[in-house]
Design a protein around this nucleic acid. Structure first.
Lengths: 252, 252
DNA sequence: ATACCGCGTTGATCTGTATCAAGGCGCATC
DNA sequence: GATGCGCCTTGATACAGATCAACGCGGTAT
């Protein structure tokens, strides 16, 4: 839709259609580490674009020339094996920053689940900018640290949890995602909207689509959740589900 | 053994037994982002101590009051489920920095595999120091980014690889660990020393000890590796093993 | 020497999840 | 309103890896 042009510094950013100062995702993102008066400079590095559902905008192995910031919609991040086996390493919603890596090529792919709006930065240029804004670098370190903790939690899930525990963890985790990351329709604390397919859930949890389906059906039969539509889950007994997710509850 | 005392700035650090300027691990660690003239200040925050094999020095859930820097030896990092199931999320060798997390409590535990020497920093004090040394913050971001990439690779392994592929990946990964991280006896590129038990390997790869043992025996029978002693593996056919690790080779 | 104990290996059997197969539902297209 | 097509569910069966069990080996304490 609206395509930002690269342009020189101007004096009165307040009256321009500056993409950064008007960005709805700014307060949730690493960009909020930059003061309003400096936003113009950040904006000069940014290019906005949209991505249709099903289209990918990062391909594993491609030269890593850009950083990305999700300003609307959700993407799945994944890695592939040569025979097509896929591991989804995470979902990136509004405010999510992508592309952190020292390597010169992307270590994962990213594909839109919903219509997305993305803000793109040139890596070398953003690196230079970071020298002038240590606060943003601090924020990036915070973000990376948090993702590392989440990744370790996911390793525990993939290495040691049962299918039932994985699904419970997934649903609890989705219910805890901050509203702003989900975009327009977020659902209540107990109503979880799933923009991804069963296949995506399976590839995220290291299971097959059939096991995901069967396990959800079983949780429903036990009264822990409701499934009003395929991509909506209502958590009926949150504490019980959490007990399963954390491994405190013995298996049935 | 040698316990560093906290002490005020002095004028001639060159003639002091400054733990940082004499630290053999410095060049491999985040500390190398700090210039020699400023090391005195870093040293004033550091406390060195040793850990016996089998002893833990970080406990999941404890208040996160410190950062750690491994200066000798290797630790296993892990998370537990209430019933004792364990996932080892990584091994930390010389130069490894631990404790990055925004949270106020540790999200994992760490236990020594070999005799270790560790350098400990107060979190609040190190945070203040980071404000004055953005280069170190940059290094931390680099380290965190690299670990994130490794974590995603491990998710692929845990979620989608077979036992055979996991063991091959593990051995290739161990063979690629930089010599300085391994400490004293490192072994050649083809001789992999394993300071951890079969149980640790199993908990790292999301398998059981029996499957690890059987799979290694099979790789040996096929001539891909040799196992001169339980904790030494010689890689005989590196390319073939790598083909299995990356999933390019069909299963037997 | 002997007993013990932690660690690793190997064998027999079991089982949770994968695989194979069929059918249903919602929704778009003509 | 029939056809087709994703996507999801459900059932039957297969299998990789877990579990249960026994034994061997090296170190060390007695």
């Amino acid at each position: 839709m609206s395509m930002a042009r690269a342009r020189p510094l101007v004096l009165d950013p307040g009256h321009r259609d500056d993409p950064c100062s008007h960005c709805g995702a700014r307060r949730y993102s690493v960009c909020n580490a930059i003061e309003s008066k400096d936003l113009e400079r950040l904006a000069s590095l940014a290019t906005q674009f949209t991505v249709e559902p099903g289209r990918s905008f990062i391909d594993e192995g491609d030269p890593a020339e850009h950083f990305f910031n999700v300003t609307a919609g959700t993407a799945k991040l994944f890695k592939l094996l040569p025979d097509g086996r896929r591991q989804i390493t995470g979902f990136a919603g509004t405010g999510h920053f992508l592309g952190l890596a020292v390597s010169s090529s992307y270590s994962f792919s990213a594909e839109a689940l919903e219509p997305m709006r993305i803000c793109r930065f040139s890596r070398p240029k953003l690196k230079v900018l970071l020298d002038d804004f240590p606060a943003m670098e601090k924020r990036l370190l915070e973000v990376a640290s948090n993702e590392l903790v989440a990744a370790q939690e996911q390793m525990l899930l993939l290495g040691r949890k049962t299918a039932r525990e994985r699904l419970a963890s997934f649903l609890i985790g989705r219910a805890d995602v901050p509203t702003h990351c989900l975009g327009h329709q977020a659902g209540t604390a107990e109503t979880v909207l799933l923009p991804m397919t069963r296949n995506d859930i399976a590839d995220y949890l290291g299971l097959t689509i059939e096991t995901v389906s069967r396990t959800l059906t079983k949780l429903k039969a036990e009264g822990l959740i409701e499934i009003p539509s395929a991509n909506t889950v209502v958590i009926r007994r949150h504490a019980a589900l959490e007990g399963i997710a954390t491994g405190e509850t013995e298996q049935h």
